[in-house]
Design a protein around this nucleic acid. Structure first.
Lengths: 160, 160
DNA sequence: AACATATTGTTGACATATCAACAATCTGTA
DNA sequence: TACAGATTGTTGATATGTCAACAATATGTT
């Protein structure tokens, strides 16, 4: 049985966990509202933003790695962006399996409209927090992410 | 045009934003792996956990408020949990529109199996961080969530 | 060359999420 | 009572995400 003090600490940590998930959710939702002005989802914006300034484009597998999502997910994402003419798929010289997803001129222009606004909002998010605050927050978040990944890796040993 | 120093600060803040979203994602994914051992999704667990110790149950609209999701989402969530016998829907005396979603005995027993393990993992997440760290993290996250909500509220004024 | 193995992108099944629209029902007020 | 307006849960369309399985293609080894 835990001492009262220990369970109070556990409760504080649990509240912090919920706050972390809730904050990320609030930010993601705010970005969804923001990008809706251009009929984009946050994920679609992320794709366009990754392709910015990469004339040769990026393969779908590499995109899935950077977006931390499954390859199969990128298929539909690229499909919808291609249908709107914001990206195109180009064949890869030495590999007939792969495409490179490339930003079209139209996609680049859309990005150019969005980015200044986007960066202004991303900056406004930090109102009231100093750069030192930001640094300390980042390093704690890194520690948490490491812990989470370690815990996830440990799990398969006990599953069922 | 921004000074180099200002843009370096902006970059630090942007990195912190990506780290925040990435950390939340890592935690969510770890929890997905964890709950998969019981064939539950994180959202399904959240429903069960909200219902724990509430004999009268909770209406779907109230559930959607606490889960911060749309009402229509709760329909399917409750459907699937009901199909597995983990929750049941009970009529509300004075209101023929509403149900109350209630944890069944079977659902309560499942929760009882999961919770100790879950809390142990949730606690392990904070390894390396003191309680003071946790507190400071929480208050920064609260400030960020407030900013995000403010920004989201401001947006409709400029959409399109 | 031949063969095992790995990789690429796609598909299908499903869960989760959004939103708009709907019928049924409740509530407050004229 | 009657009726306007709000609320409840559901449905359908769509996007995003997971996973497993697949054909096509590369790659490395014998």
């Amino acid at each position: 049985m835990k001492s009262p003090l220990e369970s109070a600490a556990a409760r504080r940590r649990y509240d912090a966990l919920l706050q972390l998930l809730g904050t990320a959710d609030a930010i993601w939702n705010a970005s969804r509202v923001f990008f809706a002005a251009w009929d984009l989802s946050p994920s679609q914006f992320n794709v366009l933003n990754l392709l910015r300034g990469v004339p040769g484009g990026i393969s779908q597998t590499e995109l899935s790695r950077r977006l931390i999502t499954h390859r199969s997910n990128v298929t539909g994402l690229a499909d919808r962006l291609e249908r709107r003419g914001l990206v195109s798929r180009q064949d890869v010289a030495g590999d007939r399996r792969a495409y490179r997803v490339v930003l079209t001129r139209s996609g680049a222009e859309l990005l150019k409209q969005i980015l200044p606004e986007y960066h202004a909002r991303a900056d406004a998010l930090w109102r009231g927090l100093s750069l030192n605050h930001v640094s300390r927050l980042t390093s704690k978040l890194q520690a948490l992410a490491r812990n989470a990944e370690r815990i996830a890796m440990e799990l398969p040993e006990r599953v069922k």
